[in-house]
């Protein structure tokens, strides 16, 4: 029933159909449709205005990436230098390592976080006692509230050679030799995703859980009547119905795939040089390189480069999503 009504509505509002009407009618109809949407535009206005001021107005600053910034001349008056500020990102032997690390870690984070959080959200949804739902949810969210600097202290408390719990208590219990965690790059491709998962699983779980909460209960009731097992219900109802949220979250993460959590890659490994092979990412490289120079042109260039690559990747990903299901695409 609901389906047919939805179809009807789409039919009526489909702009492609309006196109076929004779011109006069089309214009009239356009005005009428537009009038109908005025309340929507009023709703949009304050939020868009804010974004315009907060995000679009300062975007003139993007030109800094292409300028030799000078205080006397100001941002707009400084000289154009083309792509000179970008050179340092590519003219280095580390370009491959930092790009590889950034992409691999972030790609892995996207998969790991999504899969685990969807799983946890589904399990939460199975719990019948409200008390336990709340308890689990609260606990899982706690790490998200802890700032990365503090996380780095906690990781240090666990991994430090001399005063860490792992080396002092746990490894001896297992009869293992202490390990210099901060000197051995090979452990970090495991340590970093674990920390990242620990910290962000609560955030993702909440989002997916509230998506599941939004699912109409009737579907499950009908499925149960039809004798569907839990597993089938999850596969056939829950996941398909929250997939728009999963897809959107993934698209947004892809857009930021060239950015990485600076605290996670800089503070948590204590900036230990021996770990650079597995912890150096674009953000940390840029930070270390510019600490002395303090060149805002080069810093902007790095940001611009990260954004533009993410942007292209999202456009591609969005195109693919669009091919499959128009509604799930971002735009």
């Amino acid at each position: 029933m609901a389906e047919t009504i939805r179809k009807d509505l789409e039919y009526e509002n489909d702009p492609n159909l309006v196109h076929n009407a004779p011109t006069k009618v089309r214009v009239k109809k356009k005005i009428r449709t537009f009038k109908r949407y005025i309340p929507f535009f009023i709703m949009l206005a304050p939020g868009l205005l804010y974004l315009l001021i907060n995000n679009y107005l300062p975007m003139f600053g993007l030109v800094i990436a292409f300028k030799d910034f000078n205080f006397v001349k100001g941002i707009l008056g400084s000289e154009w230098v083309g792509f000179k500020n970008f050179e340092f990102l590519f003219k280095t032997q580390d370009a491959f390592i930092i790009t590889r690390n950034t992409l691999l870690y972030n790609g892995f984070f996207i998969v790991l976080n999504t899969v685990s959080a969807v799983g946890v959200a589904i399990l939460l949804n199975e719990i019948r006692k409200v008390f336990f739902v709340r308890l689990y949810q609260s606990i899982i969210l706690i790490p998200f509230l802890i700032s990365m600097v503090v996380v780095s202290y906690l990781v240090y408390a666990g991994l430090s050679v001399e005063s860490g719990i792992l080396n002092n208590t746990i490894l001896p219990l297992l009869g293992l030799e202490p390990i210099s965690w901060y000197m051995e790059p090979k452990y970090w491709p495991f340590i970093l995703p674990i920390i990242n998962l620990w910290k962000s699983i609560g955030f993702f779980t909440i989002i997916f859980f509230s998506a599941i909460l939004g699912i109409d209960k009737e579907y499950y009731e009908a499925a149960t009547l039809d004798g569907a097992s839990k597993w089938q219900q999850i596969k056939k109802i829950t996941i398909p119905l929250i997939s728009p949220v999963i897809i959107m979250m993934t698209l947004l993460s892809i857009g930021r795939i060239f950015y990485s959590d600076f605290g996670l890659f800089y503070q948590v490994p204590l900036n230990s040089g021996m770990l650079y092979d597995t912890t150096n990412v674009i953000d940390t490289y840029v930070y270390r390189g510019l600490l002395q120079l303090g060149d805002i042109g080069m810093a902007s260039a790095a940001g611009f480069y990260q954004s533009i690559v993410g942007f292209i990747l999202v456009l591609i990903a969005n195109l693919i999503v669009r091919k499959r299901s128009k509604d799930n695409a971002l735009f």
């Binding site: 974004l51 300062p58 975007m59 800094i64 941002i75 930021r256 993410g310 999202v314 735009f331």
Partner: peptide, 21 residues
């Protein structure tokens, strides 16, 4: 409009211009 919103997630003018504004 959705694109306008999305675009703000990827690009920003940076701290200096924001502060200026």
């Amino acid at each position: 409009f959705t694109f306008l919103v999305f675009f703000t997630l990827l690009f920003n003018g940076g701290l200096v211009p924001t502060y200026y504004v």
